[in-house]
Design a protein around this nucleic acid. Sequence first.
DNA 1: CGCCTTTGACCAGCGC
DNA 2: GCGCTGGTCAAAGGCG
Length: 551
Amino acid sequence: MGKGWGLTLDSDPVTSNFFTNKSNSTTTVAGGSFLGLKQQHHHRDMFQFPVSLAGSRDSDRRGTSASSSPSDDTKIPVDEVDFFSDKKVRVVDDVKKESIEAPASDLDVNTGLLLLTAGSDQSTVDDGVSSDMEDKRAKNELAQLQDELKRMNAENQKLRDMLSHVSNNYSALHMHLVTLMQQQQQQPQRNRETQAIQESKPEQVTPLQILDLRRPSAAGAEAAETISHSSSEERTRSGTPPSNVEKRVNREESPESESWGPNCKVQKLSSGKPVDQSTEATMRKARVSVRARSEAPMITDGCQWRKYGQKMAKGNPCPRAYYRCTMAVGCPVRKQVQRCADDRTILITTYEGNHNHPLPPAAMAMASTTAAAASMLLSGSMPSADGIMNPNLLARAILPCSSSMATISASAPFPTVTLDLTHSPNPLQFQRPPPPPTQFQVPFPGQPAPVSTPQLPHVFGQPLYNNNQSKFSGLQLSQEMGSSQLGHHQQQQQHQAPPQQPPTLADTVSAATAAITNDPNFTAALAAAISSFISGGTHPNSSNNNNNNRQ
DNA sequence: CGCCTTTGACCAGCGC
DNA sequence: GCGCTGGTCAAAGGCG
């Protein structure tokens, strides 16, 4: 592939990887991600974008630095900086630092050029008075620019702090929520078991009960497993062969499996507690399914995927493709991609597992959804008398604004959260009030159009990438918005992309998923729904069933 | 040359 | 026990 955009990315190999999606069809790159750019990468069945963003594929693939050469740095137009992006902030900071740290002569030279350019279309009269005035004006402008620079620097710093603060808050909140949910679901189980022990003879206590009492947190995992394998109630953990899940995990950990290397093994064994294995197995079983209209073979979610299998599934003429995450060795996350049998424009992507490595924002959102779904299914399964989740309630928790978009099913072979993005929700549901212009714009005077961060439409603040072959009816608004909000980068990309394929919004899926987990309402509503669900206040409404099993 | 996809084979679970 | 199905493996070949 060709030249980069000249963006200097973080030299950290890990973070460099964050921004490169080396899926079989698409590649999303750091700057592109934040700037709302997405590069459609090579695919045999697909088209090609003539450009790529920062860093070669190989360097990304090997986890080496994706930094561009210094000469590349110089290509960065400052006015294309995305202030949401840490990278971009760093880039612009570097530019500023250079400017600030540079000798005054350098500044003068630059400014002179600027002024020359600015003044070139003014007057060509070259008398002493006007040159004096020009000089004064130049100094004034210089001072103004420097002030502007300082102000922006401070603003950048503030934004960065805010971003990290929000990130930390979200992580802490998420962890807290999971912990709370686990605690809540453990309590009734413990009570029940204590009661059972008290009421029964000692020899009636099964090893499972003993194990569960010793490891309370295993109760939820066991329960969730019971959902998937109702016939496994009789098995015990200590005396019988490993469960299906465990066997599969062991198999996956076998040395001959190249993709399940030491990392995974260490991670699983390091805990040394069966409960962790069990929980992880269950967490891996919990799934997030995304239904979206897309003509692309796969949606871009910010992760790197490697296809490891394809099968014809029963009842669907379209094959099901199996992918595993290759962003890190031993990452247990897998996904299945299949077209809907009823409507082949609908692409069903099912995620399973939790990443064992840092993720780019979009992928992190998806992973958060998976983790949240797993947690929900894990903890919500116990308090329920029949072990079946209340799909509606939790669906409303996930998407309070549109209960039709998300369904949750624990009665499926695997507990699954389904996000249906094929419907056309009220566009306003996806819109956040636009940020104050001054907050995200680069107030460079004379700039044709203010460069606001949301150069592409955002869903709940998540930038929507462009994918050339996908359509998401549910988020058409974004496209419409995008036409008027296209930033310079995207326009550039559009310019370089094959003209016969106007950009559309495939990656809305990940963005929408991101929206769910990024929206503060999500956590609150989720917590409320979980607690309401646990307290047994709401009864299931079976009318809204999961349609995930169409696969 | 390394990574990818393809694809047939294999394995395990499940229902009959 | 047998067959069906889903999920995974791994060899072979392709691609950049």
